[in-house]
Amino acid sequence: MKKSILRITLVAVLCITCNQAFSQTTNISVIDSAATIEPKLKFGCGFGLNFLGGTNITLSPNLRYAISDKFNLGAGIQGSYTSIKDVQKTTTFGANIITEYIPTRKFTTLLEFAQLKVNNTRETPTGEVKDDFWESALFVGAGFNINNKITIGAKYNVLYDDDESVYTSPIIPFVNISF
């Protein structure tokens, strides 16, 4: 009796297995094409805060064009306020050119050139000294992408000069939000 139950169970398992092994199934999935196509033109707004050695607040709206899935090219305007307590206050306004390389969906690298008009007021023992000049900045940076809308990272100013730069530090953290 035990042998017949074992044989029936074995035959049933083989039939089920063979049926699954030799049957053909076709899975058809419909992809919503509107959901998978990323827009070629994106508006973004970057902002940065830096409190190393002072205060630096930057706002930089930009427009970027996706050349491919991996490369973006864009331009924008940039404004910032920098303050070192009882030493100087600086406002800047200018334009920037941005290139982005996105090796993976979660990681972005960037190269950014900015040309800025600087208005600087320094406190000296003899009073305030005002300067107006142009400054160039070349940033190399990287950031983590959060759901393809937000990038959080840091950029390094290759042209930073401790004695003459408008920036308080060569490293500037940033957040860029894209629409």
Rank of each mutant, 00 (worst) to 15 (best):
M1V: 09
K2S: 13
K3N: 13
L6I: 09
R7L: 13
I8V: 08
V11K: 06
V11E: 06
C15F: 15
T17C: 07
Q20Y: 14
Q20T: 11
A21I: 14
F22L: 12
S23K: 11
Q24N: 15
T25I: 06
I31T: 14
A35G: 03
T36S: 08
E38A: 13
L41P: 00
K42C: 04
G44K: 00
G44I: 01
G46N: 02
F47S: 02
G48P: 03
N50T: 04
T58L: 14
T58P: 00
L59A: 07
L59R: 05
P61A: 05
P61H: 08
N62P: 04
R64D: 04
R64E: 07
A66D: 06
A66Q: 08
A66G: 08
I67R: 01
I67Y: 15
D69S: 14
F71G: 06
N72V: 01
N72L: 13
Q78F: 03
T82Y: 04
K85I: 03
K85G: 11
D86Y: 12
D86E: 15
T91M: 13
T91K: 13
G94D: 04
N96Q: 08
Y101W: 11
P103W: 09
T104L: 14
R105D: 15
R105G: 11
K106G: 14
F107N: 06
L110W: 03
L110Y: 05
T124E: 12
T124Q: 04
T126W: 07
G127H: 02
K130G: 05
D132W: 04
D132K: 15
W134G: 07
S136L: 01
G141P: 03
G143D: 03
F144C: 15
N145P: 06
N147Q: 10
T151H: 02
I152R: 01
I152D: 03
I152S: 00
L159K: 01
D162W: 04
E164Y: 10
E164W: 00
T168I: 15
S169H: 12
P170L: 09
I172K: 03
P173T: 11
S178M: 12
S178T: 13
F179H: 07
